[in-house]
């Protein structure tokens, strides 16, 4: 942002913290519901699991208003270019959660028509286990993402080592 150069370090480090705090507690997900994982994703937002406790309940159906894409389900090669276009339409900084084994590696459905992991076409921040993952797992993925966002700088381009959730 350039602000770092204009203020004393003590001030900008607090500013970084403030921005990170704001970012991590107001994630707006873009639901890319491709198969059964999407049902669990919906349950996650519902009253029982209530993703709003973590500030990520505002699902936007326009990628231009979202900053975390939840790829929930099996991505096919035919869908791949569309998914990539949606990702490109999201404003920076943006993150991707690969929800379930299909999005992470092709999973059960890895065959001629399925992309063997959405990391083939976009950078992934959190990989999630499960087929489909329980809502708890998705909540944990969001929490892991929050801890990652916390460590990011103002430009949102800090280390992007992916987090792999394990059982």
């Amino acid at each position: 942002m350039g602000l770092e150069d204009k203020f004393p370090e003590i001030l900008t480090s607090r500013l970084t913290d403030l921005v990170a705090w704001g970012r991590k507690n107001s994630l707006w997900p873009m639901p890319l519901g491709l198969s059964c994982c999407a049902i669990e994703m919906m349950a996650t937002v519902g009253p029982k699991f209530d993703l709003s406790r973590f500030g990520a309940e505002v699902f936007r159906f326009s990628p231009r208003q979202a900053d975390v894409m939840i790829v929930a389900g099996t991505l096919t090669w035919k869908m791949a270019s569309v998914a990539r276009r949606i990702y490109d339409q999201m404003p920076d900084p943006k993150w991707v959660i690969a929800m379930g084994v299909c999005a992470s590696s092709g999973g059960l459905y890895r065959n001629y028509s399925v992309v063997p992991g959405v990391d083939r076409i976009m950078p992934v921040d959190v990989y999630t286990v499960g087929c489909p993952p329980r809502p708890d797992t998705l909540i944990r993925a969001v929490m892991e993402l929050q801890s990652k966002i916390e460590e990011m700088g103002l430009d949102g381009r800090s280390p992007r080592e992916p987090i792999v959730l394990q059982n």
């Binding site: 001629y112 063997p116 083939r120």
Partner: peptide
């Protein structure tokens, strides 16, 4: 079914079962 520019015919027997990472 497959994308227009997909390079293979995947139900032929010599096509690998797990598919080809054609990214």
């Amino acid at each position: 079914l497959m994308p227009d520019d997909y390079p293979y015919h995947p139900l032929r027997k010599d096509f690998p079962l797990e598919g080809v990472d054609n990214s």
